[in-house]
Every structure is written in C-alpha cells, then in structure tokens.
Amino acid sequence: MSIETTGERSAPRPPYPVITDETAPFWDSAHARALQLPHCRGCGEFFFPPAEFCRFCWSEEISWDQVAGTGKIFSFVTFQRMYNRAFEELLPYHVIVVELDEGPRFMSRLTGLAEGEIPTVDAAVEVVYEDLDETTTLPLFRLQGAAR
C-alpha cells in the first residue's frame, strides 16, 4: 500500500475505512455509537462480512440491527514494528480478532490498556468508539471492566 500524505502535514493520514454502499451501514452505525451488523431474518444469525444474502441460509431478508458490543478476544497480535507511519506513535499496539456475543468475528484494535498490561485470548471486551474526523468513527474494543 502507498503512504499517503495530506497537504503540508508531515504525519501521514491513517488509512481510512473503505466505505462503499455495502460497507457504509457498519461505519454509519459506528459513527452513531450504536454498532450494527447484518442480521438474517431467515435464520436469526448475525453475520460478517456484510453481503446481500445470509451466508448461512441464503435468505435475502437482511436487516442491519444493533449488537450488544460485547464479546471476547478470539486472538490478537501485537505490532512492534512500523508498517505505516500513521501508526508509529501507537507502537506497540494490539490488533484483535473480536468474537461478538452474537457470533460474528472481525478485526479491530484494543485500546485503553494500562501501561504494560497484556491482553489474553478469551478475555472479555466491549466496544468503544474513536472518531477519525467529524464523519468517520472506528469501533475499537477495550477489556471489560477497564477504567474509562
């Protein structure tokens, strides 16, 4: 991927979510601080990634519904080397595969750890929201019970 820079800023702009007609509801719901995922009316499952029909039962009756925002760490890695200058000052940071209580798994970043605190597989997490700008918000996760 290319390293983008904006105008005279020396710090590069972080990669933004790829927002398309299909992915927009996810990012819009994060921005509204009420994360939604596609929810199948046919079989009742939430699923990810979003698609025009349910990958379990192929029902096309899909609605975007809010999830509880709680789950656990399915796995995680800790970035120690810089891959992109926009994340340099976050190093070391933890990218997680989160498993929501509703079932779907996807990637996010762990935030709000105390100095030296190390995540563990299966640790309980909850969603928190971080604005990239006035229209775009990332759903991040923190350990449940972490101080605000």
């Binding site: 991927m1 790829v18 398309t20 992915t23 990634p49 992109n84 940071y93 970043r109 990239l132 991040l140």
Partner: peptide, 13 residues
C-alpha cells in the same frame, strides 16, 4: 486493499 482487511485499525501484512 480489501475492504475488511483492517488497515484502519493498524492491521498490516
């Protein structure tokens, strides 16, 4: 780049 590749979260490689 894949739309759910996680780059916005700092996921690379």
């Amino acid at each position: 780049r894949y739309e759910w590749g996680g780059e916005e979260f700092g996921m690379f490689g």
